[in-house]
Write a protein that binds this DNA or RNA. Structure first.
Lengths: 242, 242
DNA sequence: TAATCTACCAAACACTTGTTAGGGAAGGCC
DNA sequence: GGCCTTCCCTAACAAGTGTTTGGTAGATTA
C-alpha cells in the first residue's frame, strides 16, 4: 500500500556498476514475493519520498554510524535519533545497508569531484600534493561522519559486490597518489631515498585519520590544519640543521 | 558442575582499578540467579582452566575480532575458528566482552613495559621519539590484531567503567608524547612554529594506523619501517632546498 | 578400580535484530 | 465533499544473539 522507497539516487560513483539487487543480506528471510527478484522491476522512476527528508535522515544515520560503529548501530537507535520508530525508516530506505551505501557513495562522489578539479589543473607534483591534501581536509570538514564510517567499515565491505565502488575508488586513489609521488621524485622535489609505497600510505593515513578527532568549529579551519599537516609531511618536525 | 573460568589474569594495566563485575551487557536477560551479583564472589582463586589454552583461544579471538570487528564477531565464529562450539568458550571465559578486555589489557601492559624501558633511559627528546616510535612498531609486529582492535573499538569502550584503563592509558600516552615534543622544542631539536597538539596527533596517528596494513613477514622488519617513518616524520618527504 | 578433574558437547533460554504488513492521520487537489 | 498522496505508527515475524545448564569422554590421581 505504501512503499515507494529504494535508492534511486545512489549514483554509484567512480564506476557506475549498477549491480542488480543481488539480495543477500541477513538470512534468507521472508520467502514471500518469491518472484520480483529476477531482474529488478525496471527502476520504478525516481521520486516518491522527498529527497530532502532522505537527506536529513541520512545525516542522522551517518552520525550514529560514525559514533557507535555500523554493526553496533541498530535501526531503532537511528529511528530514536530521528524521533520516529524503526519501521518508519523503511518508508524511505529499503534496508539498513542501503543507508550505509548511500552515505558512502554520496561522500565518495563529492570527494572525487573535488579531486578531479585539482587534477585537471595540472599543477606540479608538490602543488598537486598540497592541493589534494587541502581538498581532503575540506571533505573531512564537510563529511566528517561519512569519512569516519569509511575509515572503520570499508575494510569489511569491500568483499561485498554491492560495495564494489569502494574498491574502485581505493584503487584510483592509490594510483593518483602514487603517480603524484613518482612524478615528484622524477622532478627532484620529493626525496628519492624513500620507499614510495610507504610514503603513499604515510601521506594517505596521516590525512584521513584526522577525521577521528577533527571537530568542525574547533578553532582550526580545514585549510589551517592542512597547512600545518603539509608543513610536517613536507619538511618534517625536526629543526633543519642545514 | 563445571565453571571455573573468569578473568583472573586481567591485571588491568597502567591503573589497577579492578572494578567489580558491574553487569550491564546485553539486556537484563535471565532473571534467574537473582542474587550473586551484589559483590562478586570474592575472586575465586586464580586457577583451573589452563592459561596456555586461554592464550591460544585469545589469540584466535583477537584475529577474528581484528578482521571482522568486535560487534560483527559472534561467539560462534570464534568457536568455529577454534574448532569448538560456542558454549564451550564459556568454560574458559565468562563473557565475550571479557575476552576483549583481556586481549586489550594484555597488549597495553606489554606496550607500557616497552615504553617504560625507553623512558627510563632518559634519552634526549629526539632519541626518545625515535625509540618510542621504534618500540611502537615492534608492538604492532607482536600484537597486530590487538592493535587493530584497539584502533577500531577503543573509542566506543571508554564510556564503560570496565575499560577505564583504556582512558588512563590514553592520557598517559598523551602526556608522554606531549612532554617529549615540548622538551624537543625547548632544546631546539623540534620546530617551534608548529601546533604541538597537532604534531602530537600527527605522530601518534601515523604510527598506529600502520597496524591496519602491516603484515609481519612482508619484507619489512618493524625496525626498517620505523626508520623510514621516522625519516619522513622528522625530515619530511620534500627535497631539502638548503 | 573408583573418584576426580579437565575440557568439551548438546540443547535450550531469553532477548535483540532487521524487516514487513496493514492501517491511519494530515494535508493538498478535483 | 471525496480522493489521493505523504509520512509515520502499531504490531508482529523469523533469524540470530550471548549465555546457561546439565551431561560426558578421557585423562589423572588415589
Amino acid at each position: 500500500m505504501s512503499k515507494p522507497n529504494q535508492n534511486s539516487t545512489s549514483t554509484g560513483p567512480t564506476t557506475s556498476t549498477q549491480k542488480a539487487p543481488a539480495k543477500k543480506s541477513p538470512a534468507k528471510q521472508a520467502p514471500a514475493t518469491k518472484a520480483a527478484v529476477k531482474q529488478a522491476p525496471a527502476k520504478k522512476a525516481a521520486v516518491s519520498p522527498s529527497p530532502e527528508r532522505r537527506g536529513e535522515l541520512l545525516a542522522i544515520a551517518a552520525d550514529v554510524f560514525a559514533e557507535q560503529g555500523y554493526n553496533a548501530t541498530t535501526v531503532r537507535k537511528i529511528a530514536d535519533a530521528a524521533g520516529m520508530l524503526a519501521g518508519s525508516l523503511y518508508y524511505h530506505f529499503d534496508s539498513k545497508e542501503s543507508m550505509l551505501e548511500e552515505i558512502l557513495s554520496t561522500f565518495l562522489t563529492e570527494l572525487w569531484d573535488g579531486y578531479d578539479t585539482v587534477l585537471q589543473s595540472r599543477l606540479g607534483p608538490r602543488e598537486t600534493l598540497e592541493a589534494l591534501v587541502t581538498e581532503s581536509f575540506r571533505e573531512i570538514d564537510r563529511h566528517r561522519s561519512a569519512v569516519a564510517i569509511y575509515q572503520k567499515e570499508s575494510r569489511h565491505l569491500v568483499a561485498q559486490a554491492r560495495f564494489q565502488y569502494l574498491t574502485d575508488s581505493q584503487q584510483r586513489f592509490e594510483k593518483t597518489w602514487l603517480t603524484t609521488l613518482e612524478r615528484g621524485v622524477a622532478e627532484h622535489v620529493f626525496r628519492e631515498d624513500l620507499d614510495i609505497r610507504l610514503a603513499y600510505r604515510f601521506v594517505r593515513d596521516t590525512v584521513w585519520v584526522a577525521a577521528s578527532w577533527y571537530r568542525p568549529g574547533g578553532g582550526h579551519s580545514p585549510e589551517e590544519i592542512a597547512r600545518q599537516y603539509l608543513s610536517m609531511v613536507l619538511d618534517g618536525i625536526a629543526v633543519r640543521t642545514t
